[in-house]
Design a protein around this nucleic acid. Structure first.
Length: 427
RNA sequence: GGAGAGGUGGCAGAGUGGUCGAUCGCGUCGGUCUUGAAAACCGAAGAUGGGAAACCAUCCGUGGGUUCGAAUCCCACCCUCUCCGCCA
């Protein structure tokens, strides 16, 4: 959520930055400003009347103590109450409208963001390693089926399309990767946390998945009162960042660094048949997530650090990848600046996104009322960041496809052998 | 699922219709004293919104209601604890 004060002070500058994203969210700014003015006018007037009422009530109290007649004052108070009620209704309705719009407006892209219209204009920041030379590379579906690592027919029987069943060595490879990722990231100084996968609506609003992307989410039905609806977390970002929702942490505890392994649930509506071969795009997938809460001065530096922590995974596994930066037109709604890490998948003949590392500024902190107390005792919004460290299925794909051998076997990179217990997969 | 108790400031815990945003204690911070520390004593300190500021309004789990006036009375909901039942 954007700071209303910044919008109030610099509406055109805010609109200009929002325009860089494409789309027309910037048009909401005008309405937000109109609501803001109307709201404040109504509130000021209401408060003056409340102050008056308070005074009268006190006088009545004192007069009654003396046994005096207070009927005149009481009827005056009743008249004031009628006015207050009308003003209150107006202030409330306006405030609600303002809040709804504010929650829909995306974050401002940071000045450091490259400008561009869509994903074709995302600059490559760096490339690591080189694509292995493989004659007639097979894709992971062929490889996983040949070695009986993953079964899609089973998955369809149980859950339908968009799911996978890992079996035997296939399941163990997944588990080995999860443990390898968690160990590597805790070595980087992240506290391992194990969090619920079902989260409240407030959490989804706090990190920014709602209200904009409700159709992408799985959730339970709300009860008769319209309450107590839970959502399946689409990423551990939601439960982990929200561990600190509505709290005030001492500045000395920053930075907070946490990592978590969780499954992630996404409807991926309308994406059937697109980029969804094998396990590349699924309704449920595993991910190890990195989350940081940092002092505002540290935001940019923390993004570089966190991205390096994600990249370290691919380097340790010896997987060729590249890091790109999202341009303003491709940037996620909540992010101020994002790096995507893309791993090479020879069987697909393209790079796959295995990690997206984002810096949100105070956008999420303001939504979830996450604050820190600074040296002067003031409550301020810290910056939040997160990144995949990394997503499992595409890492799995890259591993099978980059390490496939001419004899049909798959070599397990040395860093993973202690976790997997074998140095290759062969049938 | 059944029965009971309770949700008040960082913690603990008073307050049952009228200067209560809220007693007291612990903890925290500043000061006095001390070579330094402890102790003792003095003092400071909640959050949100509006305002340049003085200051004003709101907030005692959440949402409604009664009243001139609600932490205090009424209704609904949420949560926590204890006991019983069930259960991985």
């Amino acid at each position: 959520m954007l700071d209303i004060r910044i919008i109030r002070e610099n509406p055109t500058a805010v609109q200009d930055r929002l325009k860089l994203r494409g789309g027309n969210h910037w048009k909401l700014i005008e309405d937000v400003l109109a609501c803001d003015e109307k709201r404040r006018a109504a509130e000021t007037e209401k408060q003056a009347l409340q102050s008056q009422r308070k005074l009268i009530a006190k006088q009545i109290g004192m007069a009654k103590g003396k046994g005096e007649d207070t009927s005149a004052a009481e009827s005056e108070a009743r008249m004031i109450n009628a006015k207050i009620e009308a003003l209150d209704a107006e202030a409330e309705a306006t405030s609600l409208r303002q809040q709804e719009h504010l929650m829909m407006i995306p974050n401002l892209p940071h000045e450091a963001c490259p400008q561009g219209e869509d994903e074709t204009q995302n600059p490559v920041v760096r490339t690591w390693g080189a694509a292995p030379e493989i004659v007639d590379p097979q894709d992971h579906v062929v490889l996983a089926t040949r070695h009986q690592l993953i079964d899609w027919d089973d998955a369809v029987r149980v859950s339908g399309s968009g799911f996978a069943v890992y079996r035997g060595r296939g399941a163990k490879l997944e588990r080995a990767l999860i443990n390898f990722l968690l160990d590597t990231q805790t070595d980087h100084g992240y506290e391992e946390v194990n969090v619920p996968h079902l989260v409240k609506r407030e959490c989804m609003e706090g990190t920014g998945q709602l209200p904009k992307f409700e159709e992408d989410m799985y959730g339970t039905e709300p009860d008769e009162s319209g309450q107590n609806q839970l959502f399946l977390a689409p990423t551990a970002e939601v439960p982990v960042t929200n561990l600190y929702r509505d709290t005030i942490v001492p500045e000395s505890r920053l930075p907070l660094k946490m990592c978590a392994y969780t499954p992630c649930f996404r409807r991926e509506a309308g994406s059937a048949g697109r980029d969804n071969k094998g396990i590349i795009r699924m309704h449920q997938f595993d991910k190890v997530e990195l989350v940081q809460v940092v002092h505002p001065d540290q935001g940019l530096a923390a993004l570089e650090e966190l991205t390096a922590h994600a990249e370290a995974i691919l380097q340790k596994l010896g997987l060729h990848y590249r890091t790109i930066e999202l341009c303003t037109g491709d940037l996620g709604a909540n992010s101020a600046k994002t790096y995507d890490i893309e791993v090479w998948a020879p069987g697909q003949g393209k790079y796959l996104e295995v990690s997206s590392c984002s810096w949100f500024g105070d956008f999420q902190a303001r939504r979830m009322k996450l604050r820190y107390k600074d040296g002067e005792g003031k409550n301020r919004f810290p910056h939040t960041l997160n990144g995949s460290g990394t997503a499992l299925p595409r890492l799995y794909v890259a591993l099978l496809e980059q390490y496939q051998q001419e004899d049909g076997s798959i070599t397990i990179p040395p860093a993973l052998v202690p976790y997997f217990g074998d140095s290759s997969i062969r049938s």
